[in-house]
Design a protein around this nucleic acid. Sequence first.
DNA 1: CTGAAAGCGCTTACAG
DNA 2: CTGAAAGCGCTTACAG
Lengths: 339, 339
Amino acid sequence: MSKPNKTPTINDVARLAGVSKKTVSRVINRSALLNEDTRIKVEAVIADLGYVPNPQARALALRRNFLLGLLHDNPNAQTVLNFQEGVLDAIRETEFALVVRPVDRHSPRMIDDIRRFLELQRLYGVLILPPISENDALAELCHEMGCGYVRMGSAMLDDAEHIVASNDREVVSQAVDYLVELGHRRIALIEGPEGFRSAFERREGFLAAMQAHGLTLPPEMRVQGNYRFDSGIAAASRLLDIADRPTAIFASNDEMAAGAFHAARQRELKVPDDLSIIGFDDSPIAAHIWPPMTTVGWPVREMGRAAALKLMAPTDEAAQQYRFPATLVKRQSVGPPRG
Amino acid sequence: MSKPNKTPTINDVARLAGVSKKTVSRVINRSALLNEDTRIKVEAVIADLGYVPNPQARALALRRNFLLGLLHDNPNAQTVLNFQEGVLDAIRETEFALVVRPVDRHSPRMIDDIRRFLELQRLYGVLILPPISENDALAELCHEMGCGYVRMGSAMLDDAEHIVASNDREVVSQAVDYLVELGHRRIALIEGPEGFRSAFERREGFLAAMQAHGLTLPPEMRVQGNYRFDSGIAAASRLLDIADRPTAIFASNDEMAAGAFHAARQRELKVPDDLSIIGFDDSPIAAHIWPPMTTVGWPVREMGRAAALKLMAPTDEAAQQYRFPATLVKRQSVGPPRG
DNA sequence: CTGAAAGCGCTTACAG
DNA sequence: CTGAAAGCGCTTACAG
């Protein structure tokens, strides 16, 4: 007789179902070697009691927690949150929970810190956001520690089971196509920082499209930023001070594109009449800046959901998807060039 | 002899220190009833072995996890992330980890969902962000489940041990003072939605300051929004279409203030020459909009850090703080009224 | 101040 | 297909 108020344990289920704990355990873990009638009987008792296996006990016995980790380093806040929402979509109604771990990619101890974290928390698996998702040493660490992992990236950085990827290169090419169709010829690039795969992919997409259209990109029409707002102002300032200045700018992310808006304003250039601007991310700033910004949106929430499923239920159909196309979001920061 | 590669357990420590497991446990848990020499000896072995108690085992034995939960419903992404950073500052180098749980405050099942979550995960405590931090039923739930909690709020919603609060009311009064000093008299209010304590506090601060300056607020100069961008456009549009339109607007958050910028632009009014605007939050949009927005910044990261400490180490000096003053951040969206 | 025994609620070989 | 025993790595009364 257990006290009426206590939450039921595996023993209660076993006793009421007239089987051993082990058999109940088999039901919980969906063991194949199990008589159908036994399973039905046990499941009835489980439902009746409202029994839920204690995660702490399972974690101890299995040496593995039912926790998904989210590793990120300071990217776009909205992206992190949208990804989290997607993960939640996937873990809702499951026994899993989400542990968030911001890390510092500039720290020499980052890998060691994460190693300790994984050792201690015995995570079921981790989800890794860019840019640290591009760190192969980190993926290797997960592998050697027996911790599942899925990376989010701008390209196929890993096998399908370990990645949710967008098609940055293609979609940036499409953005350039769009500008060219409107009549732009002097199109400048504000690229992202060295060492970011996203910066690389977006630049390659840009260059490929320019070449496809037979357009040249003079060196001064290509400036590097660091993905932050101020660097966008600086980069765009240089571009707009060129005598034969560009009529359109593609910036590798929205923050830098927002900086380009500022640089234009400072010079009393109108967007889009004097200057068309396209960003990347579709972050809140894109919709709220004036005029609303044409940008590239990626399905971050869906990526988060799929990434979590890859960890929890790799055989699920929804977990098979690894390609998540980004799309051009047309707003008012792009128009035909003047004259 | 345990295998050399295995991570050390409490048994290894006990054996090498020549004491019982229980004594090691006492050292880990800083029991007072402990001979000083014994403690030093055990601590030496712990350091030597690099022993770290297994959190899963402790969780099972203690019926309590070393996890801090962050409960939030969709507020400003940057606020959530800054708060997370603060929590991380506090849990770094501890055994604690942070579990994030977005919830839906409009769901009738919210409380039940959270109850199940707390039951299952046996959290050490939860941190609750606004607006759900204002839900007293939720605080009551935590209390009855024996789960620690700390709320973040715009005012003293709870006892000092259960809250990190800003001073929204005062700081908004100061914002109004600032506008009045510059010469503004027709100052309008875009207030936040019903049921948000922050909206209430900010409105009260606004009204108190107006009254203190002997200024009246005609009903048409006070419009309600829902904290979202579009509602800011709508509210400001109404205000700016008044014949004797305001020379300054205070909006209860940055998103609505950004909407006010749009409404001004649509009417070809210049900020700040034709219209001064002040927001609240100091979110990224505030710094990136043109012209950069004067707003109120609150020390979200510090609040997150203190909130986590209140849960983990309530006696720490840093955990005593519960007041976190917000401050006016002056940028370029405010100037003297024209003429 | 310290220890031997039992227990937290599960799962893992090993039998049968 | 099913079960009795031992174990995961800690802590909690209870003695002494």
